[in-house]
Computed example of a mutant assay.
Amino acid sequence: MSKEITTSQNIVRYNGQSFIEEEDDIAVESALTIMVNGEEFATMVCTPSELEELVVGFLASEGMIRAFQDIKALHIDVETGFAYVDLVNPNKVEKDFHSKRFIGSCCGKGRQFYFQNDVKTAKTIMTRFTITPEQCHKLMKQMQDGSSHFQQTGGVHNAALCSSDGVVISRSDIGRHNALDKLFGYCLIHRVPIKDKIIAFSGRISSEVLLKAAKIGVGIILSKSAPTNLAINLADELGITAVGFIRGKGFNVYTHQDRIQGLEYKPVQTSCI
C-alpha cells in the first residue's frame, strides 16, 4: 500500500489578461519517522513513494548499514508514517548516535548531524569511466523528460542513475537529498554495480548532494544547475567529475575533466600588466 503522491487543489490562475478558477495538481509532502531497533532515529519530510528505497538509502548514507543484508527486518506503515527497522547489529544506534533527528525537505536545513558520519561513508572515486559531451546532454534530457511527477506538479526534484546508454532508474522527491537516497537504496537492494554509472540531477550541486553521490560511489554527476564552492572542493578531493549548467548546447566541467571525452583541459593563462 502507498499514499498518493499528488493531490488536487482549487486555485485561481492569472493568464496575463484575466483570472481563471481551475483545479491544479500539487505535490504531496509527508512525514516519515524511522524507528531503528525500537528507538526513534529520524523523522524526514518526503514524497511518500519508494519508501523502502528511501529508508535503506538514508541508513546507508548515514553509516548505519553498509549493505542491504545489514537489515534484519524492515516494515513500513504508510498510514501512520512510521518505518520500523531491525538491524543485524543491534548496538549500532546506541553506540554511534545520541539524539533524534529531523530532516526537512529543503536542502539540509534542520539536519543536526551534517558531516557527522561523512568521513566514514563518503568514498574516494577511482573509476576511469568516461562519457562524451553528447551523452551528458542526452542523459540530462532523458532524466527531465522521464519525470512525469515534475511535469504534473513542478514541485519535486529529480535524480536518475544512468549508464552511458541511458537512464537506468529515476526517482523524484520534494527533498533533493531524498531523491538521491532513493537511488542509493535501489542500488543496495538490487545490488547494482556502480563503477560505470552516472547521476543526473535536476537541482544545484550543493556539498550535501556531492557527498550523497560520493557515498553512492558514482564518479560523474550531471546537473542543469550550478555547484557551490564547497561542493567543487569536495568533488576535487573525492575524485568526482562535477558537470553543471547543462543547458542548450553547452555545460561547465568543474572537476576531474579527464572523464569527459574530447576535453583537453588547459589552465587559464593570466597575463601580468
Rank of each mutant, 00 (worst) to 15 (best):
K141Q: 12
I26H: 05
A200W: 00
S202I: 09
G203I: 09
N117F: 12
S206Q: 09
F58Q: 05
L59V: 04
D145Q: 09
A122R: 03
K95A: 09
I216K: 01
L230R: 03
G154C: 05
H177Q: 01
D70A: 05
Q261K: 15
Q17I: 07
Q9V: 14
G248I: 11
D86F: 02
V36N: 04
K182I: 13
R191V: 13
S49M: 09
G110Q: 03
A242R: 00
H177N: 10
G146D: 00
I103P: 00
G154W: 00
F68N: 08
G248Y: 10
M140D: 06
N117H: 08
L139H: 06
T153H: 06
I11R: 09
G250E: 13
V93L: 15
A214W: 04
P48S: 13
L211R: 10
E23T: 15
L87N: 05
I76P: 02
P48C: 11
A42I: 15
F102N: 08
V93R: 14
L263N: 08
S172G: 04
M126D: 12
S148R: 10
R191N: 15
K138M: 15
L222E: 02
E29M: 13
N233W: 04
K215M: 10
K120L: 14
L183K: 11
V268K: 10
N252Q: 05
N252I: 14
F251S: 09
H190E: 11
G217W: 05
V93E: 05
I240H: 01
D70P: 04
I199A: 04
S49H: 08
G248M: 09
Q269N: 08
V45H: 05
G175E: 02
V119P: 01
G248P: 03
A160P: 03
T127G: 13
G16R: 10
V192W: 01
P193G: 04
R191P: 00
T270D: 06
P193C: 11
T43M: 14
A159Q: 08
Q261L: 15
G16T: 12
V93Y: 15
Q9Y: 07
T132P: 03
K249L: 05
N10P: 06
A231Q: 04
M35C: 13
R247L: 14
N158K: 01
T33M: 12
R13K: 06
R66W: 01
N178K: 08
Q152Y: 01
D173P: 06
K95P: 02
A160Q: 06
I125E: 00
F251L: 07
R259Y: 11
L161M: 12
K95S: 06
I125G: 02
A231C: 11
R128C: 08
S202R: 01
H149C: 02
R259F: 11
V156L: 10
D258C: 08
